[in-house]
Amino acid sequence: MHSGLVNPIDFSREGRQAGHLAIPYSIDRSPYYQIRMPILRLQNGEGPSLLLMAGNHGDEYEGELQLSRLMRLLDVKAIRGAVTILPMANLPAVMAAKRCSPFDGGNLNRAFPGDPMGSPTARLAHFLEHELFPRHDVMLDLHSGGTTMAHLPCTLIERQADAARFERAVSLMRAMGASHAFIADNGPAAPTSMGAAARAGVIGLSGEFGGGGTVTPQSMAFTAAAIDRLLVTLGIVEHPVLSRAPLGEAVPLQLLSLSRHSQGIYANRRGWFEPAAALGATVSAGDLAGWYHDLECLEQQEEELRFAEDGIVISHRLHCDSQAGDCLIQVAEPITE
Rank of each mutant, 00 (worst) to 15 (best):
S49C: 13
G55Y: 00
N56V: 07
H57W: 04
G58Q: 02
G58F: 01
D59G: 04
E60M: 08
E60A: 00
E62Q: 06
E62C: 06
G63S: 11
E64I: 15
Q66V: 10
L67D: 03
S68R: 15
R69T: 08
M71Y: 03
R72I: 13
L73S: 12
D75W: 01
D75T: 08
K77A: 09
I79R: 09
A82N: 10
V83K: 03
I85N: 02
I85M: 00
I85R: 00
N90V: 04
L91P: 08
P92A: 05
P92F: 15
A96D: 11
S101D: 02
D104M: 09
N107C: 08
N109F: 03
N109M: 03
R110Y: 05
R110I: 10
R110G: 11
F112G: 04
P113T: 15
P113A: 05
D115V: 02
M117G: 14
S119R: 04
P120Q: 10
A125L: 08
F127Q: 11
L128I: 15
L128C: 02
L128M: 14
E129W: 03
F133P: 06
P134I: 13
P134N: 08
P134V: 12
H136A: 12
M139N: 02
H143E: 14
S144P: 09
G145R: 01
T147W: 10
T147P: 02
A150P: 04
A150K: 06
H151E: 14
L152Y: 03
P153F: 08
C154S: 15
T155P: 04
L156Q: 10
I157G: 09
I157M: 15
I157L: 15
